[in-house]
Design a protein around this nucleic acid. Sequence first.
DNA 1: CGGTATCCGCAAGGATACTG
DNA 2: CAGTATCCTTGCGGATACCG
Lengths: 85, 85
Amino acid sequence: MYHLFKNSKLRFSELQRKLPYVNKRMLSKQLLELEKDNIIHKKIYPVVPVKTEYTLTNFGKSFEPIVNAMETWGENFNQNSKRDH
Amino acid sequence: MYHLFKNSKLRFSELQRKLPYVNKRMLSKQLLELEKDNIIHKKIYPVVPVKTEYTLTNFGKSFEPIVNAMETWGENFNQNSKRDH
DNA sequence: CGGTATCCGCAAGGATACTG
DNA sequence: CAGTATCCTTGCGGATACCG
C-alpha cells in the first residue's frame, strides 16, 4: 500500500523489486487478499506475456492518513527505516 | 495501545475487560512483547494479591499519530468500528 | 489478582518446481 | 511475465488447568 500511494500504479514485477524480502508466492497471496477486501484493484492486460497493474481503490485510498502517519513515524523514530522501505 | 492512550494507566484486569475477545494468556504474551520492545512499562505493586499497572513509555507515545489515524479511520470508514474498541 | 504451564490444531510463510 | 502447486516447518493462538 505504501508503494501504491507513492506510485499510484505498479506492475507485479515492480512490487517484487520494491519488496525484495517478500517472495512472489506471498506477494501474490497478499495482493489477492487486498483485492478481495476491495483495497486494491488489479487490471490484467490480455497480452503475451501477461501484464498486470495494481492500483488502490477509493476504499484503499481511505488508508492514506494511516500510511502517512506510519511513514512519518519511520522517518522520525525508527533508525532502521532506510531498509524498511 | 489504543486503550493506554485513552486511559494512560491500566491494570491487567482492566485491559482484560476492555479486550474481552483476547484471552489472558495472549494478553499476557502481547504485553510482554510490548514491554520487551520498550513500548509499555509495567509497574508491579508488591501487595497481596498482586497488582500491576501498565503505562506507555515515551517511545510508546511516539505511536500516537498512527493510533489516532487508525481511530479516525475506524470512525469514518469501518461500519463495524463499534464492536472493535 | 495476575499471571504460567501444557497440549493442541491450524494457518502463515519459506523453498522449489512448474505453467498459460 | 505473473503467477500456481506442492511440500514443509514454525509458531500463533485457543482451551484448560494450575500457582504465588
